[in-house]
Nucleic acid binder design. Structure first.
Lengths: 214, 214
DNA sequence: AATTATGGATAGTGGCACTCTCTACTATTG
DNA sequence: CAATAGTAGAGAGTGCCACTATCCATAATT
């Protein structure tokens, strides 16, 4: 197929497809002439994936490229595909590390140890979590310890279900793809559900008579 | 205090403070002369909040302004503070609504009904969730139904804990503040914990002998 | 008196994700 | 067999966003 059909089938405008090819999110087509190339189903698939990661997952284009490269690379083992996906999917941050941050980081380490989690020191989620906890501390939200515990239990339960579901997939490529998709798109899904559930619980606990209208 | 101290105490550069004042995230100081103004503790507090929402929560400045306006407005009732916070904290999206999307939206409605949640039709999380589910469907991730159910249960549990914790706060202002903080910062906290737990579960279930090094 | 800081306004910067335009072709159509 | 439309690739341009720099007339500090 040519680029027009690729665009039609994915809904991505042609200039954007060209941009994604330049940026390496989608491979070049198979050249058949000086200004002609042919695209196949794998281009459709990869373009859809790229779009999903960028639009719904909110990833920077550079991160999406890494994640896609991971999926479509050969020679990856099942032992590090998840770790590498997490690296690729966590956009780099830079933040000062003062003493409040150090305390928060220690708290993260302690939480991980207490729950018996086996997490590599380099996992970028450690930093992200320490950032958030340090910020909460600076805002004086000190009574979050029980909430944090609930969050951790919950995350453990989620992760258990997710890892089981993913390891059920046959080959490594399908696993890698599922990991990337679910890591990136799971965040907005969970965030949305949390908001919906919050409203529902608030209606039940605070104002059962909120508004039947609206 | 003058602007230099405000900057020092919050770590926010002076030009950024001026920018935030222009944008209405932080109120102007109390004028004491043609080029002098005085700032108080409420400025420190509000600036810290603004910074947390933008930096850690990743909110656009416009959304942060709305959220802060909500916190510091009078005349809000506890019945709609949460709904308004969710509106303010969900950056507007625009996406096509084709038939796949309609199916996903119907699935969202069905999920909400099945769980007995009382959610206003205007809650923006409905759209966000429908977007994500439609994307998953377009990617052929159709086996997500059981996962979605797990997510929903989990969200319900989380929301229960959160709403209880927040309703424990005395006055409405403190509640509004806690809602905004926890809605915005809870997302990265949960996302990080999920990643950490995923790695831990993967290590347990797939490769117990992953890498003790690293 | 000299230096430094301030409020307020305007303009400029850098990053990012596209989007446009151009050229030299190739394919399709009446 | 023109005429029209589509294409690959590359470079430049655009629009948005979150700052950041500069300037001026004053005010505070040393």
């Amino acid at each position: 197929m040519r680029i027009a059909e690729l665009s039609r089938r994915t809904g991505v405008p042609i200039p954007t497809i060209k941009y994604y090819m330049r940026e390496g999110l989608v491979p070049q087509g198979e050249r058949t002439g000086p200004n002609q190339a042919r695209y196949g189903e794998e281009h459709v698939r990869r373009l859809r994936l790229a779009r999903a990661l960028v639009e719904v997952g909110g990833l920077p284009v550079a991160s999406a490229r890494e994640a896609l490269a991971l999926i479509f690379s050969s020679g990856i083992s099942e032992f590090d595909v998840l770790g590498k996906a997490q690296y690729a999917l966590t956009p780099p941050r830079e933040r000062a590390e003062d003493d409040v941050w150090d305390e928060a980081a220690a708290q993260v380490d302690e939480l991980i140890a207490r729950r018996g989690w086996q997490v590599k020191p380099g996992n970028p989620a450690r930093r992200t979590l320490a950032d958030a906890l340090a910020t909460l501390r600076r805002l004086g939200e000190d009574d979050y310890l029980d909430l944090l515990e609930t969050y951790a239990e919950t995350a453990e339960h989620l992760a258990d279900t997710e890892v089981r579901a993913i390891s059920r997939r046959g080959d490594l490529h399908a696993m890698a793809e599922a990991i990337v998709i679910w890591t990136a798109l799971g965040d907005p899904v969970i965030a949305s559900l949390r908001r919906l559930a919050q409203e529902a619980q608030a209606a039940r606990l605070i104002g059962g008579t909120t508004e039947e209208t609206a």
